[in-house]
Write a protein that binds this DNA or RNA. Structure first.
Length: 481
DNA sequence: AAAAAAG
């Protein structure tokens, strides 16, 4: 059974920007599926593979940037080097090429889409780098598996925030523009459930609370649901407050529909979460990446030692605003709503234009802030971790960690997953970016060291917090100046 | 003085 893999391309996972030279993608290299090796990699000294069931065989997909695929031995998959390889409808292909302006599947798309679209439609746990095109994987999966002639909910996608649900729905509608497939957003809204008509849409994307609310009131029929997606799945299935809702949605669907394929996508699945998640989902294929290889090469990370709180504000005011002005957009992440407000007011006092988003605001205000930022009307956005995950704005190439993310129960520890998601807001689809971590005191220094150790990355120090030249140098090194 | 969803 086991044959040796031909080394696949080491090209970056990210698809090229539309204008960029097309890079060679993983799919290019595997013309002949019989050349691929099955099975002989499981059990090697790789933390990623130690948790596998014994009857699962492994396939080393790539020798360098390493998405590792583990599939059931009885279901062979051939990676897709083009979207035509996937038997998509002409309407869907038109959406991909004409409206989305896609050229070829990115690496994660090339590997995961055949797994999603090939009978018997196995479940999938898929990890891939930030900005590598995960959304397309599950959006295309849903659009392709839905029967356009059956006017009933057939696909469900659950997201952690209302912003992400809306963003995913926008992608789906653009991509599926010519298919006639209907879709609806299930996020909190003003109309009481009793007054709204039953859901007819074929694809529903929303947040767990709202979806869960619709189900028992019989507004959302589940009998025909055949594909269930969790975006940011590690968060949805592990985090207190999300976990119960997510699991109950999953069991409700399993109860009421014959065969439902479950897809879990995220850039992060720490070991605890992965152990749990793979117990919840049965008979799954999986794709994953070693944590040491999750940081994006194209995004340069820096640390800036600040003597006090005021210095942090000054860095943002004098360096980020002044230098970042022509570099694209910036997101400043803060740990609490409170510090979001403080920072916003200090910057506003200095006369700088900045907007802020956090969960405490009214939904319509949140929508407006996001829209203005996506339309490029605002340059700098302060955000809580509301936007840490999934938010896709290609013009963002500067991310500032005003404070480092910390674990709630052990604040001396950094939150590695949130850190990775935050910095992934820059460098979408292989673009260049820079991250500045503003550190205050020994505790921050220690947290930063832990992050470096965890991901095996070097975070360069900006020598002086108040030196214009130092920041210019950093931005030059990041390829932004 | 955690954030997100939601009640």
């Amino acid at each position: 059974m086991a044959e040796k893999t031909e080394s696949a391309s080491a090209a970056a996972i990210s698809a090229p920007a539309p204008s960029a030279e097309p890079t060679r993608l993983w799919g290019d290299e595997v013309e002949d599926p019989s050349k691929r090796s099955w099975g002989d990699e499981v059990g090697e000294a790789n933390a990623s593979t130690t948790q596998l069931d014994l009857n699962v065989e492994g396939l080393t997909i790539d020798d360098e940037s390493t998405i590792k695929a583990v599939t059931r031995s009885d279901t062979p998959y051939t990676s897709a080097s083009t979207f035509e390889d996937l038997n998509l409808s002409p309407e869907l292909l038109k959406g991909l090429y004409v409206d989305m302006k896609f050229q070829k599947p990115s690496k994660i798309q090339a590997i995961s889409l055949p797994m999603i679209l090939t009978p018997p439609y196995k479940n999938l746990v898929a990890q891939a780098h930030n900005g590598s095109g995960k959304t397309t994987c599950f959006v295309l999966g849903m659009l392709s598996r839905v029967d356009p002639n059956l006017k009933a909910p057939q696909a469900l996608c659950i997201c952690p925030t209302r912003e992400l649900a809306i963003q995913n729905l926008e992608v789906l509608r653009e991509m599926g523009k010519h298919t006639g497939i209907t879709s609806e957003c299930a996020v909190p809204m003003d109309i009481p459930i009793r007054k709204r008509p039953p859901v007819m849409a074929q694809i529903i994307i929303g947040t767990p609370g709202t979806i869960k609310k619709w189900m028992p009131s019989k507004k959302l029929g589940l009998s025909f649901v055949k594909i269930l997606v969790f975006d940011e799945a590690d968060h949805m299935l592990a985090e207190y407050g999300f976990k119960d809702d997510s699991l109950s949605i999953m069991t409700d669907i399993e109860r009421s529909s014959a065969h439902c394929q479950v897809l879990l996508f995220s850039a992060t699945f720490n070991e605890t979460v992965r152990n749990f998640v793979t117990r919840v989902v049965k008979d799954y294929n999986q794709l994953f990446v070693k944590k040491e290889e999750l940081s994006l090469e194209s995004v340069k990370q820096y640390k800036v030692l600040c003597p006090d709180e005021l210095a942090k504000v000054m860095v943002i005011k004098d360096r980020i605003f002044e230098l970042g002005e022509n570099l694209g957009q910036t997101i400043i992440f803060v740990r609490t709503r409170y510090s979001a407000g403080i920072l916003h007011r200090s910057l506003a006092e200095f006369g700088y234009e900045v907007t802020t988003i956090m969960g405490a605001q009214k939904q319509e205000d949140r929508d407006k802030i996001v829209k203005e930022f996506k339309d490029g009307l605002t340059q700098v956005l302060i955000s809580t971790d509301l936007l840490a995950r999934g938010f896709d704005q290609q013009q963002v190439n500067l991310v500032i960690n005003y404070d480092l993310p910390v674990k709630h129960d052990t604040p001396t520890e950094p939150d590695y997953e949130v850190y990775l998601h935050r910095i992934g807001r820059a460098g979408r689809f292989g673009r260049k970016g820079a991250v500045f971590n503003l550190l205050l005191g020994d505790m921050d220094k220690m947290r930063m060291e832990k992050i470096e150790r965890h991901f095996g990355t070097q975070v360069a120090e900006v020598p002086s917090w108040n030196s214009d030249e130092d920041f210019k140098g950093a931005l030059k090194a990041a390829g932004l100046l």
